[in-house]
Design a protein around this nucleic acid. Structure first.
Lengths: 192, 192
DNA sequence: CGCGACGTTGATTTGCCTCAACGATTGTGG
DNA sequence: CCACAATCGTTGAGGCAAATCAACGTCGCG
């Protein structure tokens, strides 16, 4: 199970045996059933989570009870509330599983130790966050410049596999429209 | 002029003399007049830029010619198209100065060398990007869940100094509304 | 089997955009 | 230093995109 993680790190920066050993000691498997929480609002986010199997989402719930999805994570993806994790403060977000899932967890204190012992992990997570940051920037641009239809289409293009895997309610909560309106968009796209 | 940069790095991870020396060798001052470009669409972004003085913005121009602002940078802020910088591919963004400004630049090749020689710079930029990432996440949430008025108010709260420094056109292009509508929002807030 | 999520459709409302016009401010070249 | 242009901020009329609310058939799950 560790192999998947190693295989994911390797192309970004290759690891020495000692680094792999250290990592394998810190990592722990967690299985989740559908709808199980990994984090709830008010909790302190204590782990980085690497998805081995399944699909998860991170979202906020507004005063009206509507969910707004910040991120999905599938196989080989990371999911964590970085803000809560680093400052060890209560989170405003939820993370839960959309399918039965398995994740590898690293505790906060363990990750800091890894950073100190092996700077290569600084490197790895720097690159990781940089890539995630770029995607988040693109999403901001989309949101402030494009129509709902354009956002939906670029979601399909960017995450075709994901789109077949999750419900339209989830997609709507990600691109920032109501499910009803997303339905109307889809209908338009068919006829157009 | 290097002192400002050092002073900014120090609280995140303190530098040894050798690291400061290495950094000071790589860094170069650039002065910009108002409206001068640091990056134009199609250019490859070759530098990380640290703002010593002034105010800059990074933005995209859509097919209609409308500008959509991804980021402002003031004193002690970094501004760069990370995507173009890291892959050394043409950028889709512009960076220019809203005021006469001064920035410290680090070339791509130099930064990579710094990373290799001194892993502490991996650490520093990891933390930097993590913080920027969290802010970008918050902005995505705002965009998919809040009204224009709410976004404007939280802009004022988050960047009060900036709000007095730049025109409303710029603020509108940042929060994702037309300048006309922003004007109407302001009017509402006064009377309300 | 029955309940709750899902996806769809329609009627109505509303938030925001578009376009156009105007005075006030800024800045720029002669 | 002045005159003119350009940008800025505002206001109003009208239009469109997307939200809201309600109703309905379908499906998977307990």
């Amino acid at each position: 199970m560790l192999e998947k993680l190693i295989a994911h790190i390797e192309p970004i920066c290759s690891l020495a045996a000692a680094e792999i050993d250290a990592l394998s000691e810190k990592v722990r498997l967690k299985k989740l059933r559908r709808r199980q929480y990994l984090l709830q609002e008010g909790d302190i986010c204590r782990c980085y989570n690497f998805v081995l199997k399944g699909c998860l989402r991170m979202y906020q719930v507004d005063v009206k009870g509507t969910e707004h999805i910040l991120q999905f994570a599938q196989e080989d993806g990371w999911i964590t509330d970085i803000s809560s994790f680093h400052r060890q403060l209560p989170s405003k977000l939820f993370i839960d599983a959309l399918e039965p899932s398995e994740v590898l967890q690293i505790q906060q204190a363990d990750l800091i130790q890894l950073y100190i012992q092996f700077p290569k992990f600084d490197r790895y997570f720097r690159v990781l966050v940089e890539n995630a940051f770029v995607k988040m920037q693109e999403r901001v641009l989309q949101n402030i410049s494009s129509s709902a239809e354009a956002r939906y289409r670029s979601f399909l293009q960017e995450y075709p596999a994901l789109a077949n895997r999750i419900s339209q309610v989830q997609i709507a909560a990600f691109i920032g429209v109501t499910p009803e309106f997303l339905s109307k968009i889809r209908q338009q796209l068919k006829s157009g």
